[in-house]
Protein backbone atom coordinates (compact mmCIF):
# COMPACT_ATOMS: atom_id res chain seq x y z
CA UNK A 1 0.00 0.00 0.00
CA UNK A 2 1.45 3.35 -0.98
CA UNK A 3 0.99 6.31 1.29
CA UNK A 4 2.13 9.89 1.14
CA UNK A 5 2.74 12.81 3.44
CA UNK A 6 3.21 16.45 2.57
CA UNK A 7 6.67 17.78 3.36
CA UNK A 8 5.08 20.52 5.46
CA UNK A 9 3.62 17.86 7.74
CA UNK A 10 6.92 16.15 8.40
CA UNK A 11 7.75 18.02 11.63
CA UNK A 12 4.42 16.84 13.04
CA UNK A 13 5.34 13.31 12.00
CA UNK A 14 8.73 13.59 13.70
CA UNK A 15 7.07 14.75 16.85
CA UNK A 16 4.66 11.86 16.87
CA UNK A 17 7.26 9.23 16.09
CA UNK A 18 9.73 10.51 18.63
CA UNK A 19 7.13 10.12 21.35
CA UNK A 20 7.33 6.35 20.78
CA UNK A 21 11.08 6.10 21.16
CA UNK A 22 14.23 7.71 19.86
CA UNK A 23 13.82 8.86 16.26
CA UNK A 24 17.08 9.09 14.33
CA UNK A 25 17.19 11.43 11.37
CA UNK A 26 19.91 13.01 9.25
CA UNK A 27 20.27 16.21 11.23
CA UNK A 28 22.52 19.10 10.34
CA UNK A 29 24.38 20.80 13.16
CA UNK A 30 27.02 23.43 12.49
CA UNK A 31 27.26 22.33 8.89
CA UNK A 32 27.76 18.62 9.57
CA UNK A 33 25.03 16.09 8.79
CA UNK A 34 24.83 13.05 11.07
CA UNK A 35 22.10 10.70 12.25
CA UNK A 36 20.92 12.06 15.58
CA UNK A 37 17.84 11.75 17.76
CA UNK A 38 15.27 14.27 16.63
CA UNK A 39 14.59 17.29 18.80
CA UNK A 40 12.33 20.25 18.28
CA UNK A 41 13.87 22.73 15.90
CA UNK A 42 16.35 20.22 14.46
CA UNK A 43 17.42 20.86 10.88
CA UNK A 44 16.45 17.60 9.15
CA UNK A 45 18.24 17.07 5.86
CA UNK A 46 16.39 14.33 4.01
CA UNK A 47 17.77 15.85 0.82
CA UNK A 48 21.40 15.32 1.87
CA UNK A 49 23.34 12.35 0.61
CA UNK A 50 25.42 10.31 3.00
CA UNK A 51 26.39 12.13 6.16
CA UNK A 52 29.98 12.01 7.37
CA UNK A 53 29.31 9.25 9.88
CA UNK A 54 27.17 6.26 8.92
CA UNK A 55 24.14 5.33 11.04
CA UNK A 56 25.82 2.17 12.35
CA UNK A 57 26.17 3.83 15.76
CA UNK A 58 22.44 3.46 16.31
CA UNK A 59 22.88 -0.30 16.60
CA UNK A 60 26.50 -0.35 17.62
CA UNK A 61 26.91 2.77 19.76
CA UNK A 62 30.30 4.41 19.94
CA UNK A 63 30.25 3.56 23.61
CA UNK A 64 27.96 1.21 25.49
CA UNK A 65 28.11 0.20 29.14
CA UNK A 66 26.93 -3.36 29.59
CA UNK A 67 27.96 -4.24 33.12
CA UNK A 68 28.36 -2.55 36.47
CA UNK A 69 30.15 -4.00 39.42
CA UNK A 70 30.46 -3.17 43.05
CA UNK A 71 32.15 -5.00 45.84
CA UNK A 72 34.31 -5.17 48.87
CA UNK A 73 37.11 -7.55 49.74
CA UNK A 74 34.91 -10.67 49.89
CA UNK A 75 32.02 -10.15 47.51
CA UNK A 76 31.44 -8.73 44.08
CA UNK A 77 28.01 -7.77 42.82
CA UNK A 78 27.61 -7.71 39.08
CA UNK A 79 24.69 -6.10 37.33
CA UNK A 80 23.99 -6.42 33.62
CA UNK A 81 23.07 -3.22 31.83
CA UNK A 82 21.24 -3.42 28.54
CA UNK A 83 19.00 -1.23 26.45
CA UNK A 84 15.50 -1.42 27.89
CA UNK A 85 13.01 -3.68 26.09
CA UNK A 86 10.93 -0.64 25.21
CA UNK A 87 13.79 1.11 23.49
CA UNK A 88 12.06 1.06 20.11
CA UNK A 89 14.09 3.28 17.88
CA UNK A 90 13.10 4.52 14.45
CA UNK A 91 15.78 5.09 11.88
CA UNK A 92 14.38 7.45 9.28
CA UNK A 93 16.02 8.43 6.02
CA UNK A 94 18.80 5.88 5.74
CA UNK A 95 20.03 5.36 2.18
CA UNK A 96 20.07 1.91 0.57
CA UNK A 97 23.87 1.59 0.74
CA UNK A 98 23.91 2.26 4.47
CA UNK A 99 21.08 -0.18 5.08
CA UNK A 100 22.91 -2.86 3.15
CA UNK A 101 25.90 -2.17 5.38
CA UNK A 102 23.75 -2.66 8.47
CA UNK A 103 22.73 -6.04 7.07
CA UNK A 104 26.41 -6.89 6.81
CA UNK A 105 26.80 -6.09 10.48
CA UNK A 106 23.75 -8.26 11.20
CA UNK A 107 25.58 -11.28 9.83
CA UNK A 108 28.37 -10.71 12.31
CA UNK A 109 26.32 -9.77 15.35
CA UNK A 110 23.05 -11.65 14.94
CA UNK A 111 23.16 -14.39 12.32
CA UNK A 112 25.34 -16.72 14.33
CA UNK A 113 25.19 -18.29 17.75
CA UNK A 114 25.63 -16.92 20.25
CA UNK A 115 24.47 -13.63 18.81
CA UNK A 116 25.26 -10.32 20.38
CA UNK A 117 22.33 -9.62 22.68
CA UNK A 118 22.86 -5.87 22.88
CA UNK A 119 23.07 -5.42 19.14
CA UNK A 120 20.23 -7.84 18.49
CA UNK A 121 17.91 -6.05 20.84
CA UNK A 122 18.51 -2.68 19.32
CA UNK A 123 18.25 -4.02 15.82
CA UNK A 124 15.13 -6.08 16.30
CA UNK A 125 13.33 -3.31 18.12
CA UNK A 126 14.11 -0.74 15.48
CA UNK A 127 11.95 0.29 12.55
CA UNK A 128 13.89 1.35 9.48
CA UNK A 129 12.59 3.81 6.94
CA UNK A 130 14.92 3.82 3.95
CA UNK A 131 15.09 6.72 1.57
CA UNK A 132 15.80 6.38 -2.15
CA UNK A 133 18.63 8.38 -3.67
CA UNK A 134 17.90 10.33 -6.80
CA UNK A 135 21.28 11.79 -7.65
CA UNK A 136 24.53 10.30 -6.41
CA UNK A 137 27.51 12.50 -5.65
CA UNK A 138 30.93 11.93 -7.22
CA UNK A 139 32.04 9.80 -4.27
CA UNK A 140 29.22 7.27 -4.64
CA UNK A 141 30.06 3.96 -6.31
CA UNK A 142 27.35 1.71 -4.91
CA UNK A 143 26.38 0.30 -8.33
CA UNK A 144 29.55 -1.73 -8.17
CA UNK A 145 28.19 -3.60 -5.17
CA UNK A 146 24.75 -4.29 -6.56
CA UNK A 147 23.08 -1.69 -4.40
CA UNK A 148 20.02 -0.17 -6.02
CA UNK A 149 20.02 3.47 -4.92
CA UNK A 150 16.27 3.54 -5.45
CA UNK A 151 15.39 0.47 -3.43
CA UNK A 152 16.50 -1.02 -0.14
CA UNK A 153 15.16 -4.59 0.18
CA UNK A 154 15.67 -4.75 3.95
CA UNK A 155 13.66 -1.66 4.83
CA UNK A 156 10.44 -1.70 6.83
CA UNK A 157 9.27 1.27 4.82
CA UNK A 158 10.76 2.53 1.58
CA UNK A 159 10.45 6.27 1.09
CA UNK A 160 10.74 8.41 -2.03
CA UNK A 161 11.18 12.12 -1.88
CA UNK A 162 9.43 14.34 -4.42
CA UNK A 163 9.17 18.10 -4.51
CA UNK A 164 6.13 18.36 -2.28
CA UNK A 165 5.69 15.01 -0.64
CA UNK A 166 7.33 12.00 0.77
CA UNK A 167 5.95 8.73 -0.59
CA UNK A 168 5.98 5.81 1.79
CA UNK A 169 5.79 2.19 0.74
CA UNK A 170 5.35 -0.23 3.64
CA UNK A 171 7.20 -3.48 3.34
CA UNK A 172 6.75 -5.14 6.72
CA UNK A 173 4.35 -5.38 9.61
CA UNK A 174 6.62 -3.16 11.66
CA UNK A 175 6.36 -0.54 8.97
CA UNK A 176 2.59 -0.74 8.92
CA UNK A 177 2.41 -0.42 12.68
CA UNK A 178 4.53 2.66 12.50
CA UNK A 179 2.39 4.34 9.87
CA UNK A 180 -0.81 3.38 11.66
CA UNK A 181 0.30 5.53 14.57
CA UNK A 182 0.56 8.56 12.34
CA UNK A 183 -2.63 7.92 10.39
CA UNK A 184 -3.98 11.44 10.71
CA UNK A 185 -0.94 12.91 8.94
CA UNK A 186 -0.72 10.40 6.13
CA UNK A 187 -2.97 9.88 3.13
CA UNK A 188 -3.18 7.25 0.44
CA UNK A 189 -0.95 8.05 -2.47
CA UNK A 190 -3.06 9.41 -5.31
CA UNK A 191 -0.39 8.81 -7.86
CA UNK A 192 2.58 6.52 -8.16
CA UNK A 193 5.66 7.98 -6.55
CA UNK A 194 7.96 9.17 -9.22
CA UNK A 195 10.65 6.57 -8.85
CA UNK A 196 14.10 7.85 -9.49
CA UNK A 197 15.25 6.78 -12.92
CA UNK A 198 18.02 4.28 -12.95
CA UNK A 199 20.73 5.93 -10.87
CA UNK A 200 24.18 5.51 -12.31
CA UNK A 201 27.20 5.88 -10.10
CA UNK A 202 30.80 5.63 -11.15
CA UNK A 203 32.54 2.26 -10.89
CA UNK A 204 36.09 3.59 -11.19
CA UNK A 205 36.68 0.91 -13.81
CA UNK A 206 36.90 -1.73 -11.12
CA UNK A 207 36.27 -5.39 -11.75
CA UNK A 208 35.58 -7.37 -8.60
CA UNK A 209 34.76 -10.81 -10.03
CA UNK A 210 37.15 -13.32 -8.54
CA UNK A 211 39.06 -10.67 -6.60
CA UNK A 212 38.48 -12.30 -3.22
CA UNK A 213 39.83 -15.62 -4.44
CA UNK A 214 42.83 -14.04 -6.11
CA UNK A 215 43.73 -12.22 -2.93
CA UNK A 216 44.33 -15.49 -1.12
CA UNK A 217 47.61 -15.71 -3.00
CA UNK A 218 48.53 -12.09 -2.50
CA UNK A 219 49.19 -11.74 1.19
CA UNK A 220 52.86 -11.12 0.45
CA UNK A 221 52.28 -9.21 -2.73
CA UNK A 222 54.77 -6.38 -3.33
CA UNK A 223 51.79 -4.09 -3.94
CA UNK A 224 51.37 -3.83 -0.17
CA UNK A 225 54.85 -2.30 0.11
CA UNK A 226 53.67 0.80 -1.72
CA UNK A 227 50.04 0.95 -0.75
CA UNK A 228 50.53 1.61 2.94
CA UNK A 229 53.17 4.30 2.55
CA UNK A 230 50.85 7.28 2.70
CA UNK A 231 48.74 5.92 5.59
CA UNK A 232 48.91 8.13 8.67
CA UNK A 233 47.59 5.48 11.07
CA UNK A 234 44.55 7.52 12.01
CA UNK A 235 41.17 5.88 12.35
CA UNK A 236 39.06 8.00 10.01
CA UNK A 237 38.42 5.29 7.42
CA UNK A 238 37.25 2.74 9.97
CA UNK A 239 35.04 5.13 11.89
CA UNK A 240 33.31 6.52 8.82
CA UNK A 241 33.02 3.08 7.22
CA UNK A 242 29.50 1.64 7.52
CA UNK A 243 30.77 -1.95 7.40
CA UNK A 244 33.52 -1.64 10.03
CA UNK A 245 32.38 -3.08 13.32
CA UNK A 246 35.31 -3.63 15.67
CA UNK A 247 35.09 -2.69 19.30
CA UNK A 248 37.25 -2.68 22.38
CA UNK A 249 36.28 -3.39 25.96
CA UNK A 250 37.43 -1.19 28.79
CA UNK A 251 36.69 -0.74 32.47
CA UNK A 252 36.03 2.53 34.15
CA UNK A 253 36.76 1.78 37.76
CA UNK A 254 36.87 3.62 40.99
CA UNK A 255 36.95 2.76 44.63
CA UNK A 256 35.10 -0.53 45.06
CA UNK A 257 32.90 -0.07 42.01
CA UNK A 258 33.01 0.45 38.31
CA UNK A 259 31.56 -0.34 34.97
CA UNK A 260 32.57 -2.18 31.87
CA UNK A 261 31.85 -0.74 28.48
CA UNK A 262 32.65 -1.42 24.89
CA UNK A 263 33.52 1.29 22.46
CA UNK A 264 34.52 1.58 18.82
CA UNK A 265 38.03 0.58 18.02
CA UNK A 266 40.04 0.72 14.84
CA UNK A 267 42.43 -1.81 13.32
CA UNK A 268 44.41 1.14 12.02
CA UNK A 269 45.66 1.92 15.52
CA UNK A 270 48.85 0.29 16.73
CA UNK A 271 47.23 -0.58 20.05
CA UNK A 272 44.51 -2.62 18.37
CA UNK A 273 46.58 -5.80 18.38
CA UNK A 274 48.98 -4.87 21.18
CA UNK A 275 49.23 -7.76 23.60
CA UNK A 276 49.78 -7.57 27.32
CA UNK A 277 53.27 -9.01 27.07
CA UNK A 278 54.32 -6.36 24.59
CA UNK A 279 54.15 -8.40 21.40
CA UNK A 280 52.25 -6.86 18.52
CA UNK A 281 51.43 -9.15 15.59
CA UNK A 282 50.65 -6.13 13.42
CA UNK A 283 53.47 -3.86 14.45
CA UNK A 284 53.46 -1.45 11.57
CA UNK A 285 51.34 0.46 9.15
CA UNK A 286 51.89 -2.08 6.40
CA UNK A 287 50.35 -4.94 8.36
CA UNK A 288 47.49 -2.79 9.52
CA UNK A 289 46.62 -1.42 6.10
CA UNK A 290 46.79 -4.94 4.69
CA UNK A 291 44.50 -6.19 7.43
CA UNK A 292 41.89 -3.57 6.80
CA UNK A 293 41.73 -4.07 3.07
CA UNK A 294 41.97 -7.85 3.20
CA UNK A 295 39.20 -7.90 5.75
CA UNK A 296 36.96 -5.97 3.38
CA UNK A 297 38.03 -7.77 0.23
CA UNK A 298 38.92 -11.30 1.27
CA UNK A 299 38.14 -12.36 4.85
CA UNK A 300 34.60 -11.05 5.03
CA UNK A 301 33.62 -12.42 1.61
CA UNK A 302 35.22 -15.74 2.50
CA UNK A 303 32.95 -16.04 5.53
CA UNK A 304 29.81 -14.27 4.37
CA UNK A 305 29.99 -14.40 0.59
CA UNK A 306 30.12 -10.71 -0.18
CA UNK A 307 32.73 -7.94 -0.26
CA UNK A 308 32.40 -5.76 2.82
CA UNK A 309 31.98 -2.51 0.98
CA UNK A 310 28.81 -0.82 -0.18
CA UNK A 311 30.35 2.00 -2.18
CA UNK A 312 29.15 4.79 0.08
CA UNK A 313 32.29 6.78 -0.73
CA UNK A 314 32.94 7.98 2.81
CA UNK A 315 36.56 6.83 2.89
CA UNK A 316 37.17 8.53 -0.43
CA UNK A 317 35.83 11.74 0.98
CA UNK A 318 37.27 11.72 4.48
CA UNK A 319 40.76 10.18 4.33
CA UNK A 320 43.17 13.03 5.00
CA UNK A 321 45.69 11.61 2.51
CA UNK A 322 43.24 10.16 -0.04
CA UNK A 323 44.16 6.55 0.54
CA UNK A 324 41.01 4.53 0.04
CA UNK A 325 39.55 1.19 -0.92
CA UNK A 326 39.40 2.04 -4.62
CA UNK A 327 43.12 2.65 -4.68
CA UNK A 328 43.63 -0.63 -2.86
CA UNK A 329 41.49 -2.63 -5.28
CA UNK A 330 43.32 -1.07 -8.21
CA UNK A 331 46.69 -1.88 -6.72
CA UNK A 332 45.62 -5.47 -6.10
CA UNK A 333 44.56 -6.27 -9.61
CA UNK A 334 40.91 -5.36 -9.40
CA UNK A 335 41.03 -2.99 -12.31
CA UNK A 336 39.00 -3.92 -15.34
CA UNK A 337 41.20 -4.56 -18.33
CA UNK A 338 39.60 -6.32 -21.28
CA UNK A 339 37.22 -8.58 -19.37
CA UNK A 340 34.21 -6.33 -19.54
Amino acid sequence: MKKMIGLDKLPALWEQLSAEGPLYLPIEERGVVCFKPWYEGAVVRLDALNGVVPPKDIFLPREETYMRYQGGSQTLEIEAVSPGPDDKATLFGVHPCDLKAVEMLDRVYIDQEPGDSLYRRRRENATVVALACSSPDPFCFCNLFEVDPADAPGADIMAYLSEQSLYLETRTEKGETMLAKAESLISDAKDEPERPREVKTTDFGLYLEGLSDNLKERFDDPAWDNLYKSCLSCGVCTYVCPTCYCFDVEDFGHEGAGERFRCWDSCMFGHFTQMAGGHNPRPDRKERVRQRFLHKLQYYPQTYGEIACVGCGRCLRSCPVNLDIVQAVKALGGEAVEQR
Binding site: Q70, F252, H254, E255, G256, A257, E259
Partner: peptide, 9 residues
Protein backbone atom coordinates in the same frame (compact mmCIF):
# COMPACT_ATOMS: atom_id res chain seq x y z
CA UNK B 1 33.05 16.14 35.39
CA UNK B 2 32.78 12.45 34.55
CA UNK B 3 29.22 11.36 35.31
CA UNK B 4 30.43 7.83 35.97
CA UNK B 5 32.65 8.92 38.82
CA UNK B 6 30.93 8.42 42.16
CA UNK B 7 31.97 8.34 45.73
CA UNK B 8 31.92 4.95 47.33
CA UNK B 9 28.37 4.07 48.27
Amino acid sequence: RDARWQKKA
